[in-house]
């Protein structure tokens, strides 16, 4: 960071100013002129928090996608279907057992098994044929989508969060100052979303630690760099592939439970989240967990801010960000050059 400030003093100043301005926007109560110009601070903060929590959900879906892509070179276009499948199974488990938390391990195992079957019986037979694998995953997504439509129908489902997660919680962020008493009014936000954000951060940090501090992570990183060499040095790489695919699929399934709680599940959500993961991964850089986190945050915030301030064109913002990244940095923010 010091080095960056020394080599690019002008850019460092601009970045510092932007950060300070952003912190001021978030922390300080807004003067009335500003509220008159761009609306209430509560709206802004809600959009920002909505963007961050949506980014957390996108991260959960996209991190599995990017991990699978980074190591196995499979663009798994059935990833959105795994998300939706996880959501539906989570809904059934929550309804059947009455426990929301039990849904997570069950969904992880169930969707992980689907992923295991996909990798073991289909993708493993066409290793290296990237285009064919992608086409197969498209076929799988068509089949899975129709099977799910068959079983669960076209209506939308919402998984109920347990009692103590329902309702709002107060955050230490000032939304406005009461003009008569002078008291600060703090922002209130649905607590389940805050907990999901925390969970996503924990999962992200855990993934980073596993990847960078354990021997399994060492194998995976070596596989991303050069899998032929790794296989030649005696590692049973198919097992590593299988583990990563199962983990990525299970993560998508768990994200489905989260998505079912947070929003709702219906046919079509699979393509929506597949698209979101694609854009997140393109923006963040293929195969990079940190890149996926940054991309998810950027896309989530852009989508929510767009929804609040320019409702018609919110999707176009996402697309414009993607186009800009592709035009100026085709490998994504943190992607390694190919």
């Amino acid at each position: 960071m010091d080095k960056f400030a020394k080599t690019n003093p002008a850019w460092a100043l601009v970045i510092a100013l932007v950060v300070v301005a952003f912190l001021w926007l978030v922390l300080a109560p807004w003067p009335t002129e500003l509220e008159a110009a761009i609306g209430r601070k509560r709206v802004f903060l809600n959009a920002l928090l909505g963007g961050i929590t949506l980014g957390a959900l996108y991260f959960l879906v996209a991190s599995g996608f990017t991990l699978i892509f980074g190591l196995l070179r499979i663009v798994n276009l059935a990833h959105g279907s795994l998300f939706l499948l996880g959501g539906y199974i989570g809904y059934e488990v929550t309804n059947y057992t009455g426990s929301w938390f039990l849904a997570f391990p069950i969904v992880f195992v169930a969707v992980g098994l689907v992923g295991l079957a996909m990798q073991r019986f289909i993708f493993a037979y066409m290793e290296g044929e990237e285009l064919r694998q992608t086409l197969v995953s498209i076929g799988l997504s068509v089949v899975l989508a129709d099977v799910m439509l068959w079983y669960w129908g076209g209506q939308s489902y919402t998984t109920l969060a347990p009692g103590f997660l329902r309702g709002p919680m107060e955050l230490p962020l000032i939304s406005s100052i009461n003009t008569t008493s002078g008291e600060a009014i703090f922002i209130r936000y649905p607590s389940v979303r805050i907990w999901i954000l925390i969970a996503a951060i924990v999962i992200g940090v855990a993934m980073w630690l596993v990847l960078n501090r354990t021997s399994l992570g060492m194998l995976i990183r070596a596989g991303v760099d050069d899998r032929e060499m790794l296989a030649a040095s005696g590692v049973r790489i198919q097992l590593v592939f299988l583990a990563v695919f199962v983990f990525g699929a299970g993560l998508a399934g768990m994200a489905g439970v989260v998505g079912g709680t947070f929003q709702s599940l219906s046919p079509g959500e699979d393509t929506r989240f597949l698209l979101a993961s694609l854009v997140v991964v393109i923006v963040g850089g293929m195969g990079s967990i940190v890149g996926a986190a940054i991309g998810a945050l950027v896309i989530g915030i852009a989508e929510q801010m767009g929804l609040v301030y320019a409702p018609t064109y919110s999707v176009v913002f996402t697309f414009l960000i993607m186009a800009a990244v592709l035009a100026f940095r085709p490998q994504g923010f943190l992607g390694a050059g190919r």
């Binding site: 663009v75 992608t134 698209l275 993607m322 592709l326």
Partner: peptide
């Protein structure tokens, strides 16, 4: 972009 990346980007 090339190959599978093209699919992803055109899909997006």
């Amino acid at each position: 972009t090339e190959g599978i990346y093209t699919i992803m980007i055109t899909l997006a």
